[in-house]
Write a protein that binds this DNA or RNA. Sequence first.
DNA 1: CGGCAAATTGACACATCTCAAAGCCTGTGG
DNA 2: CCACAGGCTTTGAGATGTGTCAATTTGCCG
Lengths: 243, 243
Amino acid sequence: MAITEYFIRYLQRRDSLSEADLQRLRALKTEQASYGPGDVIVPFDRTESRSCMMLRGLSARSHKLVGRPDDRVITALHVPGDFVDLHGFVLAGLEHAVIAVGSAEVEFIGHDQLTEITENFPHLTRLLWMATLIDAAVHRQWLVAAASLRSSAHLAHLLCEIYTRLNVVGAAANGQFSLPLLQRELADILGYSPIHVNRAVRDLRDRGLLRWSGADVTILDWRGLATLARFDATYLDLERRNR
Amino acid sequence: MAITEYFIRYLQRRDSLSEADLQRLRALKTEQASYGPGDVIVPFDRTESRSCMMLRGLSARSHKLVGRPDDRVITALHVPGDFVDLHGFVLAGLEHAVIAVGSAEVEFIGHDQLTEITENFPHLTRLLWMATLIDAAVHRQWLVAAASLRSSAHLAHLLCEIYTRLNVVGAAANGQFSLPLLQRELADILGYSPIHVNRAVRDLRDRGLLRWSGADVTILDWRGLATLARFDATYLDLERRNR
DNA sequence: CGGCAAATTGACACATCTCAAAGCCTGTGG
DNA sequence: CCACAGGCTTTGAGATGTGTCAATTTGCCG
């Protein structure tokens, strides 16, 4: 069972891979698994011995709140090609759970293989490190968005980012993509109430920026959406360079 | 000029360092520099060839907003021992500036030395990686706080975190620490207006949770403050383990 | 057709922002 | 030692953004 080609595209968009790096990646032993909407992919647990990568669909990092079992906060979304909980390999474990958004497929990679890569493949190690740092840059951008954008613009920013990330790995084009997020889940991501998310969605529709029915989103006016969101993709680090 | 002992304490709190690792760290060639309040330590620039570590004081990651030159958002605070822009080594550069909060001293480390570490010191490499991942966990926690806490509790969470991080490296004790942040800067961190920050500070004072005058903060009721903020230090990954 | 979950809408309460003004501290020059 | 200036902090009042609750509509699936 070979590692997803999405991840290789993700890396090749940012650096070139040597033949040895490519072979090492393709030789990874993985286990595949499928999940339905809301299923827990990686439980909140600090003893996991493998990390997972998205193959198909979306996943989210879901934080429980102490003393409020009904509420949760989603701090990240992951698209195909993302190495979702790579950080669980270096840290003592996860401080949150990873759940499926819509139906999803993932591949698990044992931490022993990652340790081996850090011992023998320094360049590949830096690229894995890079992947976790891009996640961190996304976190920072979400903080910037949360602090500086009102609801519609904040939602618009999320949509610009997700579309761009899907587009990078070839999972979306022509402004169209599938976003199987409930408005309740969007609320957990943006930090608003579900009702307010609804108003933001309607606002973007009323402005003629997009069409959105069920899970199908079509961006009608990219320029307008990106301007409203003050979106600038620099933080996704899409330059190709030696690392 | 030797690397800061703070960083070694930071690492030793989370893993044990071999004699070889310690020697490599202490042999790092560094350049030291001092800054006054508000000075730019690392400009917004994608061509920096060295990374900096906090020696004394605080620094912040400051994001400019497109089209709003007067506003900015601060997405991270760094205390002594933090390897502030280590991620600039692996990424194409920074998407933000690093500025001094109060007066500060830092040490710069050339990226060539970091590359050399990734080639020859896999365990040390994983620890550097870990440091950047703890920063990412802090970002996530800030997102959780922003989405789930109201102003006073949100401010309380920041104070609990900064005190804990200062305490870990031995830069604060007995609930007392120096926080040379203007209320305007606190506003840029929390995503509130300076006026609202002021009301939050007053609220914490009125509840008898802390004393705060100028840059001097004394936490009078840690339990109360942590409860209000729903603070749980797990995300700072303070367990000692092999990585 | 019926039933359920999600999406949508309206009305009102609460949180936070903005603008304006007053009070406080500190450094400087007389 | 005092007077002053400037920046920061503090306070007040009204405008805007967002949350909550309740009800209705929509869309999917049995």
